[in-house]
Simulated scan of single mutants.
Amino acid sequence: MADRDPAIVKADSTPVASPVAEELAAPPAKAPGKLRRVAVMGLVPLLIIGGAVTYWYTLQGKVSTDNAYVQQDKVSVSAEVGGKIASVGVREDQNVKVGDVLFTVDPSTYQIQLAQADAAIATAQASATALANSSDLSGADASAAREDIGFAQANLARQQALWNRGFTTKAAYEAAQHQVAQAREQLRLAEARQVEARAKLATGSQVPGVLPAIAAAQAQRRAAELALTRTVVRAPMAGRVSQADRLQIGQEIVSGLPVVTIVKNTVSYVEANFKETDLADMRVGQPATIELDAYPGVKLKGHVSSIGAGTGSEFSVLPAQNATGNWVKVTQRVPVRIAIDEASPRPLLAGLSSHVTVDTDGKR
Rank of each mutant, 00 (worst) to 15 (best):
A288R: 00
V263T: 06
D361L: 11
V98A: 10
A152P: 06
V263A: 09
P258R: 01
G61W: 05
R234C: 03
S78A: 15
A238Q: 04
P296C: 14
A219L: 10
I49T: 11
K200P: 07
L187H: 11
K34M: 10
G250N: 10
D281Y: 13
T231H: 06
E196F: 13
Q218P: 06
S354Q: 05
Q111L: 11
L24S: 02
V75C: 07
Q179D: 15
G297T: 03
P28Q: 03
R283G: 09
D100C: 04
S76C: 02
Q218W: 05
E271R: 12
E276K: 01
V40H: 09
A126R: 14
P347C: 05
K62P: 02
Q286D: 12
T123P: 04
P32F: 08
I8W: 13
A320S: 03
K84Q: 06
A29L: 13
L257N: 12
P28C: 00
I48C: 11
T231P: 05
H355R: 14
T289M: 12
R346N: 13
S138H: 07
V44A: 04
A197C: 08
V75E: 01
F103G: 00
A224N: 03
M237D: 04
M237I: 12
A39T: 13
P19G: 05
F274Q: 00
R222S: 12
R188S: 14
T360W: 05
Q160P: 04
Q251F: 04
V77G: 11
T123Q: 15
S306V: 01
R337W: 07
I121Y: 03
L35E: 14
K97C: 10
L156D: 05
N67C: 02
V356K: 00
L59E: 06
D73W: 10
V70L: 05
E185G: 10
A29I: 11
R230E: 12
H178G: 15
L24N: 01
A144C: 09
R4L: 14
Y269Q: 01
S316M: 00
I121V: 11
A217L: 03
A124R: 02
D118K: 10
A126N: 15
A202T: 11
D73L: 14
P28D: 02
V330G: 05
V336N: 00
N265L: 12
L257H: 09
A192Q: 15
L47Q: 04
V53N: 07
E225D: 13
A11P: 07
D118Y: 07
T331Y: 06
D93T: 07
L59R: 06
L114I: 03
A122C: 06
A339T: 13
S87P: 09
T104F: 04
A227F: 02
R333C: 03
Y110L: 01
M41Q: 04
V207I: 11
R37E: 09
V356D: 00
M41F: 06
P45F: 01
A280L: 15
T129M: 12
L24A: 08
L156N: 07
L292Y: 08
V210F: 03
T104A: 14
V210H: 01
V75P: 00
T231V: 09
L318T: 05
T168C: 04
A130W: 14
E191V: 10
Q194M: 12
A17E: 09
D359P: 01
V330N: 08
M237R: 06
A223K: 08
P28M: 05
R240T: 14
A172C: 12
R198A: 14
V232Y: 03
L189F: 13
G325A: 13
